[in-house]
Write a protein that binds this DNA or RNA. Structure first.
Lengths: 197, 197
DNA sequence: ACTGTTTTATATACTAGTATATATTGGAGT
DNA sequence: ACTCCAATATATACTAGTATATAAAACAGT
């Protein structure tokens, strides 16, 4: 999917090795997308075999070798094309184990479904708090960075980065909110169905 | 993930062959999860090698053979355990190409990002309408089915199926709404950033 | 009668993502 | 000084999911 393009995008800014790429990815998209480290390496391999990245092996006496990857002109091309290419029309699937469990809900397990709903509710509440906290910190950091910037270009860049990070945090918050509202409604409906007086 | 359990759940109700399973899956979860047909067959193969399903080959003279799958006792066990097992605590990732494109947004492509946002907005508006329509039809169908049901158990089952379908449609609607609200906010913020007077 | 499209039905090569193993370095605490 | 844990760094076997090929039946239109 777009891990490929995200890695190209990161390497488009500067050469990096696997672990560094993971850190850069987390910094950009970590609030939305928990990326498995392994995928960095499998994706880099594929990118390399497609000729979109190259690497220099940095030999180290005791430790295993480090590979520093950089983007190729072909890679830059693919990335720039991807940036402005249209999105697919089918909206993304909502793949959640809870939804599947609810789909197979039965008279025998109403209680356990309600418990699952409650635990999911706590999970999303906690996530909401964490995300709101992150917004606050980014606001603070951005203010400090702005006060240190001297050119208006530097200021604009800080502003842009803030807008991007805030937007990505907001989308995570909006979806968490949607789940929370839905879970509450769901709980009421299921209780009505099974424990009607 | 849970395609495996969903297929077990469907076979727990009645034996079916691949294509039938796909239809049953779509009926239960199609509004949330567009399942690739191929996955049915790869998943069935894995389930078979784990001894959770068995099949009878129905030989047909001209057409290729049909395999009718049924759940084994081991499969039933796995399914029943899964139903009530706790969910993982990490909330699901929001993997959307648009979010990644925004993460790499640059002064040079503000216009194209805005276009992508607008097209995504139309996509979600259309989906909202389709989902609302589906709710209406399910309400109608349920009323007709209820009027034909004679026992109170039959009525309860119809009620339960309606509650489940409505809940799953609602979660899709809530998330589409969240995206729509976010896209509008995002558009304003990006315009502010790039085209400030 | 023929032509084309949709539905039925399965298979498979491929890409994407997860889980886990491995090994070293640098601190934090005791 | 020693121990333990987090961070650094990569690799790989595995599971999940996508794209696409194949082929026949059923049905609609002309």
């Amino acid at each position: 999917m777009s891990v490929k393009h995200a890695l190209l995008g990161i390497l488009n800014e500067a050469p990096k090795h696997g672990y560094d790429l993971k850190r850069a990815f987390d910094d950009k998209l970590g609030d939305l997308w928990v990326l498995n480290v392994g995928q960095i390496y499998t994706t880099l391999e594929r990118l390399h075999s497609e000729g979109l990245v190259e690497y220099d092996t940095i030999e180290q006496s005791d430790k295993p070798d480090k590979k520093v990857y950089r983007i190729t002109p072909a890679g830059k091309d693919i990335f720039e094309t991807w940036r402005i290419s249209p999105l697919k029309v089918e909206p993304r699937s909502l793949r959640d184990e809870l939804y599947v469990k609810i789909a197979f809900m039965d008279d025998t397990d109403a209680e356990s479904i309600l418990m699952l709903i409650q635990s999911q509710h706590s999970t999303y509440m906690a996530q909401m708090m964490a995300l709101t906290n992150r917004k606050f910190h980014i606001e603070q950091e951005s203010k400090i960075a702005l006060s240190k910037a001297n050119t208006s270009e530097a200021q604009h860049q800080i502003e842009r980065e803030k807008v991007i990070k805030m937007a990505l945090l907001d989308v995570a918050i909006f979806h968490a909110e949607a789940d929370i509202r839905w879970l509450r409604q769901c709980e009421v409906r299921i209780k009505e169905l099974f424990f009607r007086s």
